[in-house]
Design a protein around this nucleic acid. Structure first.
Length: 196
DNA sequence: CAGTGGATGCTCT
DNA sequence: GAGCATCCACTGT
């Protein structure tokens, strides 16, 4: 019985909205996996009918979680080496998701340093692959609910200042400014081009 | 600081 | 067989 500790957890309904709005609202939220994590400072929206989305060409075994209910994880392997964590949005079947790209580490720093083999806090979660390594997120979490252990997600106390820009590492639909960041954060995977 | 290439596995053509 | 929603080590200024 720990009602107080769960009071701020984001409900599944939080994710059942248009993905771009969810992405903006996630900046400043706290994400923990087994008690390890920090503040979300960078993420990207991947919408339905988005040529850069894994779901664009329809459902496959890999992207099946994107077609499932919102409020669940979609985890895929990137470049054969890294894992990337997405949060599924919108009504079930629409297949949109937010890719988490960077955290400001706040909890479990020692566990993250051990997993990453690094000391410098700035580099522990600065990038989607690094973030998953630091939080020990793998394909085993694909499809898992975000409002239950090992996940904890809490909204920010106050809306933070946002910056936006083109998404990173994609070749299609580069003109869509669906990358969001916490203004002034030193924990981004890379800087945003202009002050926003 | 910029640019290049290797590691490595899965999906889709 | 190509192409990745990446990261790191290495090169050269």
């Amino acid at each position: 019985m720990e009602p107080a500790g769960e009071a701020g957890t984001l409900p599944r309904a939080f994710f059942a909205r248009e993905v771009d709005e969810v992405a903006r609202t996630l900046i400043g939220a706290e994400l923990l996996v087994d008690g390890v994590g920090g503040t979300i400072v960078e993420c990207e929206a991947y919408a339905p009918s988005d040529p850069a989305s894994h779901a664009f060409r329809g459902q496959t075994p890999r992207n099946a979680a994107m077609f499932g209910p919102p409020g669940h994880a979609y985890v895929y392997r990137s470049y054969g080496i890294h894992w990337c964590l997405n949060l599924v949005c919108e009504p079930e079947g629409v297949a949109s998701a937010v890719l988490l790209r960077a955290l400001e580490p706040t909890r479990g720093l020692e566990a993250m340093r051990r997993r990453r083999g690094l000391d410098e806090a700035r580099l522990l979660c600065a990038g989607p692959g690094r973030l998953c390594q630091a939080l020990a997120v793998t394909g085993a979490h694909d499809g898992a609910a975000l409002d239950a252990p090992p996940f904890e997600l809490r909204a920010p106390a106050r809306p933070p200042a946002l910056v936006s820009g083109p998404r990173v590492g994609i070749s299609r639909a580069q003109e869509r400014p669906w990358r969001y960041g916490l203004a002034g954060s030193r924990f981004l995977s890379r800087p945003f081009s202009l002050p926003g």
